[in-house]
Design a binder for these strands. Structure first.
Lengths: 99, 99, 99, 99
DNA sequence: GTGGTCTAGACCACA
DNA sequence: GTGGTCTAGACCACG
Protein backbone atom coordinates (compact mmCIF):
# COMPACT_ATOMS: atom_id res chain seq x y z
CA UNK A 1 0.00 0.00 0.00
CA UNK A 2 2.48 2.59 -1.12
CA UNK A 3 0.04 5.34 -2.04
CA UNK A 4 -2.76 4.70 0.40
CA UNK A 5 -1.90 7.49 2.85
CA UNK A 6 -1.44 9.99 0.04
CA UNK A 7 -5.11 9.50 -0.74
CA UNK A 8 -6.12 10.83 2.70
CA UNK A 9 -8.97 8.35 2.93
CA UNK A 10 -10.48 9.99 6.02
CA UNK A 11 -11.08 13.27 4.29
CA UNK A 12 -14.40 13.85 2.50
CA UNK A 13 -14.68 13.03 -1.19
CA UNK A 14 -14.86 9.87 -3.25
CA UNK A 15 -11.94 7.51 -2.95
CA UNK A 16 -11.85 6.81 -6.68
CA UNK A 17 -11.75 10.53 -7.34
CA UNK A 18 -8.83 11.07 -5.04
CA UNK A 19 -7.11 8.11 -6.64
CA UNK A 20 -7.71 9.49 -10.12
CA UNK A 21 -6.41 12.88 -9.03
CA UNK A 22 -3.32 11.28 -7.62
CA UNK A 23 -2.67 9.44 -10.86
CA UNK A 24 -3.36 12.61 -12.85
CA UNK A 25 -0.77 14.42 -10.78
CA UNK A 26 1.76 11.67 -11.42
CA UNK A 27 1.06 11.91 -15.14
CA UNK A 28 1.29 15.71 -15.33
CA UNK A 29 4.41 15.70 -13.19
CA UNK A 30 6.01 13.40 -15.79
CA UNK A 31 6.29 10.60 -13.32
CA UNK A 32 4.23 8.53 -15.78
CA UNK A 33 5.39 9.66 -19.23
CA UNK A 34 3.22 9.56 -22.36
CA UNK A 35 2.77 6.14 -23.98
CA UNK A 36 3.65 4.39 -20.76
CA UNK A 37 1.42 1.54 -19.81
CA UNK A 38 -0.17 1.99 -16.44
CA UNK A 39 0.07 -0.90 -14.02
CA UNK A 40 -2.79 -3.35 -14.48
CA UNK A 41 -5.98 -2.40 -12.68
CA UNK A 42 -5.54 -5.26 -10.24
CA UNK A 43 -2.02 -4.05 -9.55
CA UNK A 44 -3.18 -0.46 -9.23
CA UNK A 45 -5.80 -1.56 -6.72
CA UNK A 46 -3.10 -3.22 -4.63
CA UNK A 47 -0.71 -0.27 -4.86
CA UNK A 48 -3.39 2.11 -3.64
CA UNK A 49 -4.85 -0.29 -1.12
CA UNK A 50 -8.33 -0.05 -2.62
CA UNK A 51 -10.76 -2.48 -4.16
CA UNK A 52 -10.64 -3.43 -7.80
CA UNK A 53 -13.93 -1.63 -8.44
CA UNK A 54 -12.53 1.60 -7.04
CA UNK A 55 -9.43 1.31 -9.17
CA UNK A 56 -11.52 0.66 -12.29
CA UNK A 57 -13.64 3.67 -11.44
CA UNK A 58 -10.51 5.79 -11.17
CA UNK A 59 -9.08 4.75 -14.53
CA UNK A 60 -12.52 5.28 -16.05
CA UNK A 61 -12.39 8.84 -14.82
CA UNK A 62 -8.95 9.39 -16.31
CA UNK A 63 -10.17 7.94 -19.59
CA UNK A 64 -13.11 10.32 -19.72
CA UNK A 65 -10.69 13.19 -19.17
CA UNK A 66 -8.54 11.98 -22.04
CA UNK A 67 -5.52 11.49 -19.84
CA UNK A 68 -5.26 7.80 -20.62
CA UNK A 69 -6.27 5.49 -23.43
CA UNK A 70 -7.26 1.94 -22.69
CA UNK A 71 -7.03 -0.85 -25.20
CA UNK A 72 -9.16 -3.92 -24.48
CA UNK A 73 -7.08 -6.94 -23.61
CA UNK A 74 -3.87 -4.91 -23.80
CA UNK A 75 -3.64 -2.28 -21.12
CA UNK A 76 -4.19 1.34 -20.21
CA UNK A 77 -1.71 3.88 -21.58
CA UNK A 78 -0.86 7.45 -20.73
CA UNK A 79 -2.19 9.56 -23.57
CA UNK A 80 0.32 10.96 -26.06
CA UNK A 81 1.15 14.64 -26.16
CA UNK A 82 0.16 15.39 -29.76
CA UNK A 83 -3.29 15.59 -31.33
CA UNK A 84 -5.78 13.36 -29.58
CA UNK A 85 -8.11 12.54 -32.50
CA UNK A 86 -5.73 10.11 -34.09
CA UNK A 87 -7.92 7.67 -36.03
CA UNK A 88 -5.23 5.16 -36.85
CA UNK A 89 -4.45 2.24 -34.61
CA UNK A 90 -7.39 2.34 -32.23
CA UNK A 91 -9.94 2.62 -35.04
CA UNK A 92 -8.64 -0.23 -37.11
CA UNK A 93 -8.31 -2.34 -34.00
CA UNK A 94 -11.99 -2.01 -33.39
CA UNK A 95 -12.80 -3.10 -36.90
CA UNK A 96 -10.74 -6.18 -36.41
CA UNK A 97 -12.80 -6.84 -33.34
CA UNK A 98 -16.02 -7.48 -35.27
CA UNK A 99 -15.37 -9.71 -38.26
CA UNK B 1 15.39 -5.21 -34.77
CA UNK B 2 15.48 -2.83 -37.69
CA UNK B 3 11.80 -1.87 -37.59
CA UNK B 4 11.14 -2.28 -33.92
CA UNK B 5 11.00 1.41 -33.08
CA UNK B 6 8.68 2.13 -36.03
CA UNK B 7 6.09 -0.11 -34.44
CA UNK B 8 5.95 2.14 -31.39
CA UNK B 9 5.27 -0.86 -29.21
CA UNK B 10 4.51 1.23 -26.12
CA UNK B 11 1.63 3.01 -27.76
CA UNK B 12 -1.87 1.61 -27.54
CA UNK B 13 -3.02 -0.73 -30.27
CA UNK B 14 -2.43 -4.32 -31.25
CA UNK B 15 1.14 -5.21 -32.08
CA UNK B 16 0.18 -7.47 -34.97
CA UNK B 17 -1.92 -4.70 -36.41
CA UNK B 18 0.78 -2.07 -36.19
CA UNK B 19 3.10 -4.52 -37.87
CA UNK B 20 0.58 -5.23 -40.65
CA UNK B 21 0.01 -1.51 -41.12
CA UNK B 22 3.72 -0.91 -41.36
CA UNK B 23 4.10 -3.62 -44.00
CA UNK B 24 1.07 -2.29 -45.86
CA UNK B 25 2.69 1.15 -45.94
CA UNK B 26 5.89 -0.34 -47.31
CA UNK B 27 3.89 -2.11 -50.00
CA UNK B 28 1.81 0.89 -51.01
CA UNK B 29 4.86 3.11 -51.00
CA UNK B 30 6.42 0.76 -53.54
CA UNK B 31 9.13 -0.26 -51.16
CA UNK B 32 7.95 -3.84 -51.63
CA UNK B 33 6.89 -4.11 -55.28
CA UNK B 34 4.26 -6.57 -56.57
CA UNK B 35 5.34 -10.21 -56.87
CA UNK B 36 8.16 -9.62 -54.43
CA UNK B 37 8.53 -12.26 -51.81
CA UNK B 38 8.25 -10.95 -48.31
CA UNK B 39 10.92 -11.98 -45.84
CA UNK B 40 10.06 -15.27 -44.17
CA UNK B 41 7.77 -15.03 -41.19
CA UNK B 42 10.58 -16.03 -38.85
CA UNK B 43 12.73 -13.31 -40.38
CA UNK B 44 9.92 -10.78 -40.16
CA UNK B 45 9.46 -11.65 -36.52
CA UNK B 46 13.11 -10.93 -35.89
CA UNK B 47 13.13 -7.71 -37.90
CA UNK B 48 10.15 -6.37 -36.02
CA UNK B 49 11.19 -7.74 -32.67
CA UNK B 50 8.01 -9.71 -32.11
CA UNK B 51 7.19 -13.36 -31.66
CA UNK B 52 6.51 -15.68 -34.55
CA UNK B 53 2.83 -15.91 -33.68
CA UNK B 54 2.45 -12.15 -33.84
CA UNK B 55 4.23 -11.99 -37.18
CA UNK B 56 1.98 -14.73 -38.55
CA UNK B 57 -1.03 -12.81 -37.30
CA UNK B 58 0.21 -9.76 -39.20
CA UNK B 59 0.69 -11.56 -42.52
CA UNK B 60 -2.69 -13.20 -41.99
CA UNK B 61 -4.21 -9.74 -41.78
CA UNK B 62 -2.50 -8.63 -44.98
CA UNK B 63 -3.72 -11.78 -46.69
CA UNK B 64 -7.31 -11.10 -45.64
CA UNK B 65 -6.98 -7.61 -47.10
CA UNK B 66 -5.71 -9.04 -50.37
CA UNK B 67 -2.40 -7.22 -50.13
CA UNK B 68 -0.35 -10.38 -50.21
CA UNK B 69 -0.73 -13.93 -51.44
CA UNK B 70 0.88 -16.71 -49.54
CA UNK B 71 1.87 -20.03 -51.01
CA UNK B 72 2.25 -22.77 -48.41
CA UNK B 73 5.82 -23.90 -47.99
CA UNK B 74 7.00 -21.32 -50.50
CA UNK B 75 6.55 -17.82 -49.21
CA UNK B 76 4.34 -14.79 -49.05
CA UNK B 77 4.22 -12.51 -52.08
CA UNK B 78 3.06 -8.95 -52.61
CA UNK B 79 -0.19 -9.16 -54.58
CA UNK B 80 -0.26 -7.99 -58.18
CA UNK B 81 -1.44 -4.46 -58.78
CA UNK B 82 -4.65 -4.24 -60.76
CA UNK B 83 -6.07 -7.15 -62.73
CA UNK B 84 -6.45 -10.36 -60.82
CA UNK B 85 -6.23 -12.82 -63.71
CA UNK B 86 -2.54 -12.32 -64.07
CA UNK B 87 -0.80 -15.69 -63.96
CA UNK B 88 2.08 -14.41 -61.89
CA UNK B 89 4.56 -16.81 -60.42
CA UNK B 90 2.83 -16.91 -57.06
CA UNK B 91 -0.58 -17.56 -58.55
CA UNK B 92 0.39 -20.40 -60.82
CA UNK B 93 2.29 -22.03 -58.00
CA UNK B 94 -0.84 -21.84 -55.94
CA UNK B 95 -2.86 -23.69 -58.56
CA UNK B 96 -0.25 -26.40 -58.70
CA UNK B 97 -0.80 -26.98 -55.04
CA UNK B 98 -4.19 -28.69 -55.33
CA UNK B 99 -3.98 -31.83 -57.46
CA UNK C 1 -10.54 -35.57 -21.37
CA UNK C 2 -14.13 -36.46 -22.00
CA UNK C 3 -14.11 -35.88 -25.75
CA UNK C 4 -10.52 -36.67 -26.52
CA UNK C 5 -11.16 -40.05 -28.11
CA UNK C 6 -13.98 -38.67 -30.26
CA UNK C 7 -11.46 -36.39 -31.91
CA UNK C 8 -9.52 -39.42 -33.17
CA UNK C 9 -6.29 -37.49 -32.81
CA UNK C 10 -4.24 -40.13 -34.58
CA UNK C 11 -6.20 -39.85 -37.80
CA UNK C 12 -5.16 -37.41 -40.48
CA UNK C 13 -6.66 -33.95 -40.42
CA UNK C 14 -6.23 -30.80 -38.41
CA UNK C 15 -6.95 -31.08 -34.71
CA UNK C 16 -8.67 -27.72 -34.52
CA UNK C 17 -10.90 -28.71 -37.39
CA UNK C 18 -11.90 -32.03 -35.93
CA UNK C 19 -12.69 -30.22 -32.73
CA UNK C 20 -14.78 -27.62 -34.55
CA UNK C 21 -16.59 -30.37 -36.47
CA UNK C 22 -17.32 -32.20 -33.25
CA UNK C 23 -18.76 -29.08 -31.67
CA UNK C 24 -20.75 -28.34 -34.83
CA UNK C 25 -22.25 -31.82 -34.64
CA UNK C 26 -23.18 -31.27 -31.01
CA UNK C 27 -24.85 -28.01 -31.97
CA UNK C 28 -26.76 -29.36 -34.96
CA UNK C 29 -27.82 -32.41 -32.99
CA UNK C 30 -29.39 -30.06 -30.47
CA UNK C 31 -27.03 -31.14 -27.77
CA UNK C 32 -26.00 -27.49 -27.46
CA UNK C 33 -29.20 -25.48 -28.06
CA UNK C 34 -29.24 -21.93 -29.43
CA UNK C 35 -28.23 -19.17 -27.01
CA UNK C 36 -26.43 -21.66 -24.85
CA UNK C 37 -23.04 -20.54 -23.71
CA UNK C 38 -20.28 -22.86 -24.71
CA UNK C 39 -17.83 -23.91 -22.05
CA UNK C 40 -14.99 -21.45 -21.71
CA UNK C 41 -12.13 -21.89 -24.15
CA UNK C 42 -9.82 -22.99 -21.36
CA UNK C 43 -12.43 -25.53 -20.27
CA UNK C 44 -12.98 -26.64 -23.85
CA UNK C 45 -9.25 -27.14 -24.25
CA UNK C 46 -9.22 -29.40 -21.20
CA UNK C 47 -12.30 -31.36 -22.26
CA UNK C 48 -10.82 -32.04 -25.68
CA UNK C 49 -7.31 -32.56 -24.44
CA UNK C 50 -5.79 -29.88 -26.66
CA UNK C 51 -3.92 -26.66 -26.06
CA UNK C 52 -5.65 -23.36 -25.58
CA UNK C 53 -4.49 -22.11 -28.96
CA UNK C 54 -6.03 -25.06 -30.72
CA UNK C 55 -9.32 -24.60 -28.87
CA UNK C 56 -9.35 -20.93 -29.81
CA UNK C 57 -8.71 -21.87 -33.42
CA UNK C 58 -11.71 -24.20 -33.28
CA UNK C 59 -14.12 -21.62 -31.90
CA UNK C 60 -12.73 -19.13 -34.43
CA UNK C 61 -13.75 -21.56 -37.17
CA UNK C 62 -17.26 -21.96 -35.76
CA UNK C 63 -17.53 -18.19 -35.57
CA UNK C 64 -16.56 -17.80 -39.21
CA UNK C 65 -19.25 -20.31 -40.12
CA UNK C 66 -21.82 -18.37 -38.15
CA UNK C 67 -22.54 -21.25 -35.82
CA UNK C 68 -21.57 -19.33 -32.72
CA UNK C 69 -21.34 -15.73 -31.63
CA UNK C 70 -18.68 -14.71 -29.22
CA UNK C 71 -18.87 -11.75 -26.92
CA UNK C 72 -15.47 -10.53 -25.72
CA UNK C 73 -14.94 -11.07 -22.02
CA UNK C 74 -18.31 -12.78 -21.75
CA UNK C 75 -18.39 -16.04 -23.60
CA UNK C 76 -19.22 -17.84 -26.80
CA UNK C 77 -22.86 -18.58 -27.56
CA UNK C 78 -24.61 -20.93 -29.94
CA UNK C 79 -26.10 -18.79 -32.69
CA UNK C 80 -29.87 -18.40 -32.94
CA UNK C 81 -31.68 -20.73 -35.33
CA UNK C 82 -33.29 -18.98 -38.26
CA UNK C 83 -33.95 -15.25 -38.36
CA UNK C 84 -30.93 -13.12 -37.64
CA UNK C 85 -32.73 -10.06 -36.30
CA UNK C 86 -33.59 -11.77 -33.06
CA UNK C 87 -32.33 -9.65 -30.20
CA UNK C 88 -31.12 -12.60 -28.18
CA UNK C 89 -29.06 -12.07 -25.09
CA UNK C 90 -25.79 -12.55 -26.90
CA UNK C 91 -26.66 -10.13 -29.66
CA UNK C 92 -27.79 -7.29 -27.47
CA UNK C 93 -24.74 -7.70 -25.30
CA UNK C 94 -22.64 -7.39 -28.40
CA UNK C 95 -24.25 -4.12 -29.35
CA UNK C 96 -23.63 -2.76 -25.90
CA UNK C 97 -19.95 -3.36 -26.43
CA UNK C 98 -19.31 -0.49 -28.86
CA UNK C 99 -20.12 2.81 -27.17
CA UNK D 1 20.46 -47.40 -40.10
CA UNK D 2 18.29 -50.17 -38.84
CA UNK D 3 16.60 -51.15 -42.11
CA UNK D 4 19.33 -50.50 -44.63
CA UNK D 5 20.43 -54.11 -45.10
CA UNK D 6 16.82 -55.30 -45.42
CA UNK D 7 16.61 -53.18 -48.55
CA UNK D 8 19.33 -55.23 -50.27
CA UNK D 9 20.74 -52.15 -51.94
CA UNK D 10 23.07 -54.12 -54.21
CA UNK D 11 20.26 -55.96 -55.92
CA UNK D 12 18.66 -54.46 -59.04
CA UNK D 13 15.61 -52.23 -58.69
CA UNK D 14 14.97 -48.75 -57.48
CA UNK D 15 15.91 -48.01 -53.90
CA UNK D 16 12.77 -46.03 -53.25
CA UNK D 17 10.71 -48.92 -54.54
CA UNK D 18 12.35 -51.39 -52.23
CA UNK D 19 11.88 -48.97 -49.39
CA UNK D 20 8.20 -48.54 -50.22
CA UNK D 21 7.79 -52.30 -50.42
CA UNK D 22 9.45 -52.69 -47.07
CA UNK D 23 7.13 -50.15 -45.51
CA UNK D 24 4.13 -51.76 -47.21
CA UNK D 25 5.09 -55.08 -45.67
CA UNK D 26 5.36 -53.50 -42.25
CA UNK D 27 1.93 -52.00 -42.71
CA UNK D 28 0.24 -55.18 -43.93
CA UNK D 29 1.95 -57.19 -41.22
CA UNK D 30 0.31 -54.88 -38.69
CA UNK D 31 3.63 -53.58 -37.54
CA UNK D 32 2.37 -50.11 -38.44
CA UNK D 33 -1.33 -50.16 -37.55
CA UNK D 34 -3.97 -48.01 -39.28
CA UNK D 35 -4.09 -44.36 -38.24
CA UNK D 36 -0.54 -44.48 -37.01
CA UNK D 37 1.61 -41.59 -38.00
CA UNK D 38 4.67 -42.67 -39.88
CA UNK D 39 8.00 -41.28 -38.74
CA UNK D 40 8.77 -37.97 -40.38
CA UNK D 41 10.32 -38.23 -43.81
CA UNK D 42 13.65 -36.97 -42.52
CA UNK D 43 13.49 -39.58 -39.79
CA UNK D 44 12.51 -42.28 -42.27
CA UNK D 45 15.46 -41.33 -44.42
CA UNK D 46 17.77 -41.78 -41.48
CA UNK D 47 16.23 -45.08 -40.39
CA UNK D 48 16.66 -46.52 -43.88
CA UNK D 49 20.01 -44.90 -44.48
CA UNK D 50 18.84 -43.21 -47.66
CA UNK D 51 18.59 -39.63 -48.83
CA UNK D 52 15.61 -37.48 -48.05
CA UNK D 53 14.59 -37.47 -51.72
CA UNK D 54 14.51 -41.24 -51.81
CA UNK D 55 12.40 -41.38 -48.68
CA UNK D 56 9.97 -38.83 -50.11
CA UNK D 57 9.75 -40.85 -53.30
CA UNK D 58 8.92 -43.93 -51.26
CA UNK D 59 6.11 -42.33 -49.30
CA UNK D 60 4.82 -40.84 -52.53
CA UNK D 61 4.53 -44.35 -53.90
CA UNK D 62 2.66 -45.55 -50.84
CA UNK D 63 0.35 -42.60 -51.18
CA UNK D 64 -0.46 -43.43 -54.78
CA UNK D 65 -1.29 -46.96 -53.70
CA UNK D 66 -3.65 -45.66 -51.05
CA UNK D 67 -1.68 -47.24 -48.25
CA UNK D 68 -0.98 -43.96 -46.52
CA UNK D 69 -2.56 -40.54 -46.34
CA UNK D 70 -0.43 -37.49 -45.94
CA UNK D 71 -1.66 -34.26 -44.45
CA UNK D 72 0.36 -31.16 -45.28
CA UNK D 73 2.16 -29.74 -42.27
CA UNK D 74 0.93 -32.59 -40.09
CA UNK D 75 2.35 -35.93 -41.11
CA UNK D 76 1.81 -39.12 -43.06
CA UNK D 77 -0.64 -41.66 -41.67
CA UNK D 78 -1.32 -45.32 -42.33
CA UNK D 79 -4.65 -45.47 -44.14
CA UNK D 80 -7.66 -46.63 -42.17
CA UNK D 81 -9.29 -50.00 -42.80
CA UNK D 82 -12.82 -48.81 -43.61
CA UNK D 83 -14.12 -47.02 -46.72
CA UNK D 84 -11.44 -44.92 -48.30
CA UNK D 85 -13.60 -42.20 -49.88
CA UNK D 86 -14.31 -40.48 -46.62
CA UNK D 87 -14.98 -36.87 -47.56
CA UNK D 88 -14.98 -35.47 -44.05
CA UNK D 89 -11.85 -34.21 -42.41
CA UNK D 90 -9.48 -34.12 -45.36
CA UNK D 91 -11.94 -32.32 -47.61
CA UNK D 92 -12.87 -29.63 -45.13
CA UNK D 93 -9.23 -29.17 -44.29
CA UNK D 94 -8.50 -28.30 -47.86
CA UNK D 95 -11.29 -25.78 -47.95
CA UNK D 96 -9.86 -24.12 -44.90
CA UNK D 97 -6.60 -23.87 -46.78
CA UNK D 98 -7.93 -21.40 -49.36
CA UNK D 99 -9.93 -18.69 -47.64
C1' DG E 1 14.42 -23.04 -44.92
C1' DT E 2 9.31 -21.88 -46.13
C1' DG E 3 4.48 -21.65 -44.19
C1' DG E 4 1.25 -24.50 -41.22
C1' DT E 5 0.10 -26.81 -36.90
C1' DC E 6 0.48 -27.32 -31.97
C1' DT E 7 2.00 -26.74 -27.12
C1' DA E 8 2.19 -24.45 -22.63
C1' DG E 9 2.36 -20.91 -20.61
C1' DA E 10 1.90 -15.46 -19.43
C1' DC E 11 -0.77 -10.87 -18.72
C1' DC E 12 -4.60 -7.77 -19.80
C1' DA E 13 -9.51 -5.38 -19.61
C1' DC E 14 -13.92 -6.44 -18.81
C1' DA E 15 -18.05 -8.42 -16.34
C1' DG F 1 -13.20 -16.18 -14.71
C1' DT F 2 -14.22 -14.76 -19.77
C1' DG F 3 -12.10 -13.90 -24.43
C1' DG F 4 -8.04 -11.37 -26.55
C1' DT F 5 -3.05 -10.62 -27.05
C1' DC F 6 1.64 -12.21 -26.91
C1' DT F 7 5.79 -15.13 -26.13
C1' DA F 8 9.07 -18.82 -27.17
C1' DG F 9 9.53 -22.68 -28.50
C1' DA F 10 8.59 -27.54 -31.08
C1' DC F 11 7.68 -30.68 -35.28
C1' DC F 12 5.79 -31.43 -39.95
C1' DA F 13 5.48 -31.68 -45.39
C1' DC F 14 7.07 -29.46 -49.10
C1' DG F 15 10.32 -26.97 -52.24
Amino acid sequence: MTFYEELEPDKPGMLYEKMADHLARRIKRGDLPPDTRLPAERRLAQEYGVSLGTARHATELLRSKGLVITVPCKGTYVAGVGRSSEPSAARSTLLAFRP
